[in-house]
Amino acid sequence: MQDEPTPTELVQAVADFLRTDIAPLIAGHQAFKLRVGINALDLVVRQLTQASPAEAAELTRLKQLLGQDGDLLELNRALAAQIASGTVSLETPGLKDHLWQTTLDKLAVDQPNYASYKREAGRGLNDA
């Protein structure tokens, strides 16, 4: 495996090539499908660069919130079960902040240009 370019750089290069060199040459439904493909590549780049740190922070918050250890899937299931049973609620210290930050982190990867995300990402947790 090569050190350079990284998988992120390769995917970004393909997206940039399609966006700048190919997209101007295509019209109609094919242009729409090309934009969908470019958006998918951009999403992969954001997943490669942002998802791991966000998931690590989410895992840390879950461990603190639940007071137990486990992986991200296990702890999210445990939190969902506690919410469903009423063991925890929005009045539980840290839950609202955790849910809000997790949502913002997921939107940063999935829909960073979503107007409501942009507005809320600029606000502090206490402003929400």
Rank of each mutant, 00 (worst) to 15 (best):
L90I: 09
D69V: 13
E74Q: 14
A121T: 12
I83F: 07
F32Y: 07
Q64N: 14
V109I: 14
Q64L: 14
V45A: 10
T60F: 13
V36K: 15
L79W: 02
G124K: 12
E74H: 15
R119Q: 15
I83D: 00
A115S: 07
R123F: 07
R61F: 10
G70E: 05
K63Q: 15
L43F: 12
N39Q: 10
R46I: 10
L62G: 04
K96P: 00
T60W: 04
N39K: 15
V88D: 08
L104F: 06
Q12G: 08
L66S: 03
L48T: 05
L73G: 11
R123Y: 01
L43A: 10
Q101R: 04
A13L: 07
P53N: 09
K96V: 09
H29I: 09
L10M: 11
G28I: 10
D110S: 09
Q82D: 12
Q82M: 09
M1C: 15
K33E: 05
T20D: 15
E91P: 04
D16G: 10
I83L: 11
Q2L: 15
E55Q: 13
L95I: 02
L59F: 02
T20V: 15
D3L: 14
D16Q: 15
R35K: 13
A13V: 11
K96Y: 07
I83G: 01
K118W: 06
S52G: 07
L43G: 11
S89R: 11
T60R: 14
D97F: 00
S52P: 01
I83Q: 02
A15Q: 05
N113R: 06
G67N: 08
G67C: 12
G124L: 11
L125K: 07
A40R: 15
E91S: 15
L10R: 06
D42L: 08
A128N: 06
L10K: 07
L79N: 12
A128Y: 09
G86Q: 08
K63Y: 05
Q30Y: 05
G94N: 01
A57I: 04
T87R: 13
L104I: 07
A31F: 10
E9S: 13
E58V: 00
L104V: 00
D42Q: 12
E91G: 15
T87N: 04
K96R: 10
L41Y: 01
L25K: 00
V44K: 14
I26L: 13
L95Q: 04
T102R: 10
A15I: 02
A108D: 04
L65Q: 00
Q47M: 15
E58D: 09
R77Q: 14
S89K: 11
A51M: 03
L18F: 03
W100F: 10
I83E: 11
T6Y: 01
Q47E: 11
Q111H: 08
R35H: 03
V14K: 05
Q2I: 14
Q50H: 01
D42V: 06
S89I: 05
A121H: 14
Q68L: 07
Q30C: 09
G28D: 08
T6V: 06
L10G: 02
L125Y: 13
H29G: 04
E4D: 04
T92V: 06
A54L: 02
L72V: 06
E4P: 03
K118Y: 06
V11Q: 07
R19F: 04
I38V: 03
S89Q: 04
Q111G: 02
D16Y: 03
K106H: 00
E91F: 10
L104N: 08
L62Y: 10
A84I: 02
T92N: 05
D21L: 12
G94D: 01
R123S: 08
A128L: 13
A23V: 03
